[in-house]
Simulated assay, not measured.
Amino acid sequence: MREKFLGAGSDLYSNAIHRLWWIAELTSRGNDYSTTDAVFANQTMVNKVFDRWFARYQPAVRAMCDELADEPSRVIDETTRRFNHALTNVQLEGLSETEAREMIRQIVTESR
Rank of each mutant, 00 (worst) to 15 (best):
R2A: 15
E3R: 13
A8M: 13
G9A: 10
S10N: 12
S10P: 06
N15F: 00
A16Q: 06
L20N: 13
L20F: 04
W22M: 15
I23P: 05
A24T: 10
A24R: 07
E25P: 05
L26T: 00
R29P: 01
N31F: 15
S34C: 02
S34N: 09
T35G: 14
T35Q: 14
T36Y: 06
T36P: 08
D37C: 15
A38H: 01
A38G: 10
A41L: 11
N42F: 03
N42K: 10
Q43R: 11
T44I: 11
N47P: 04
N47L: 09
D51H: 07
D51S: 11
R52V: 07
F54V: 06
A55M: 00
P59T: 00
P59G: 00
P59H: 01
A60F: 03
V61W: 11
M64R: 01
C65E: 00
C65P: 02
C65T: 03
D66G: 13
E67W: 03
E67T: 14
L68Y: 04
L68E: 00
L68D: 09
A69G: 04
P72F: 05
S73M: 08
V75Y: 04
I76M: 11
T79N: 02
R82Y: 09
R82A: 14
A86C: 09
L87H: 05
T88D: 12
T88H: 13
Q91S: 12
G94W: 01
S96Q: 06
S96T: 07
S96A: 03
E97F: 06
E97A: 04
E99H: 05
A100H: 01
A100T: 07
E102T: 07
M103Y: 07
I104M: 02
I104E: 01
I104P: 02
R105F: 00
R105A: 10
R105L: 09
Q106E: 10
I107V: 06
I107W: 04
V108G: 01
E110G: 03
R112C: 03
R112S: 07
R112M: 09
